[in-house]
Computed example of a mutant assay.
Amino acid sequence: MLLPNKLFSYSETALSKIPYVLEVLDEPLSPSEILHSIGGVLGGPLELIYALDILYALGEIRLIENEGRITRCSKK
């Protein structure tokens, strides 16, 4: 996973794609649906995986396993 450093600017990393992923997750979507929704922003499916990994680690999204869809976690 690329993180911002001397070689890579913020806009070249998965961190810059997180707002776009969260924007389309108003309803549960599969990873392919997310990719098609914001495909122009992403450099490919690998960037989506990195962004989803970050969001999952932060507790912002969860997987609905029986449906294979991703949804935002509710804020308490």
Score class of each variant (00 low, 15 high):
1 M>S: 08
1 M>D: 09
2 L>D: 08
3 L>M: 04
3 L>V: 02
3 L>P: 00
3 L>F: 09
3 L>R: 10
3 L>D: 07
4 P>M: 05
5 N>K: 06
6 K>R: 11
8 F>G: 02
8 F>T: 03
13 T>Q: 07
15 L>D: 07
17 K>S: 12
18 I>K: 11
18 I>Q: 10
21 V>G: 02
22 L>P: 02
24 V>P: 00
27 E>R: 12
28 P>T: 02
28 P>D: 09
28 P>L: 01
28 P>I: 00
30 S>V: 01
31 P>K: 07
33 E>W: 03
36 H>L: 12
38 I>L: 08
39 G>Q: 10
40 G>R: 13
40 G>P: 06
40 G>E: 15
40 G>A: 05
41 V>G: 03
44 G>L: 10
44 G>Y: 13
44 G>P: 03
45 P>M: 05
45 P>C: 02
46 L>P: 01
46 L>D: 15
48 L>E: 10
48 L>G: 09
48 L>T: 04
48 L>H: 05
50 Y>Q: 13
51 A>D: 04
52 L>Y: 05
52 L>S: 05
54 I>S: 01
54 I>V: 04
54 I>K: 07
55 L>N: 09
56 Y>S: 08
62 R>G: 06
62 R>L: 01
66 N>I: 03
66 N>A: 11
67 E>H: 13
69 R>G: 00
72 R>D: 12
73 C>L: 04
74 S>V: 06
75 K>V: 09
76 K>A: 14
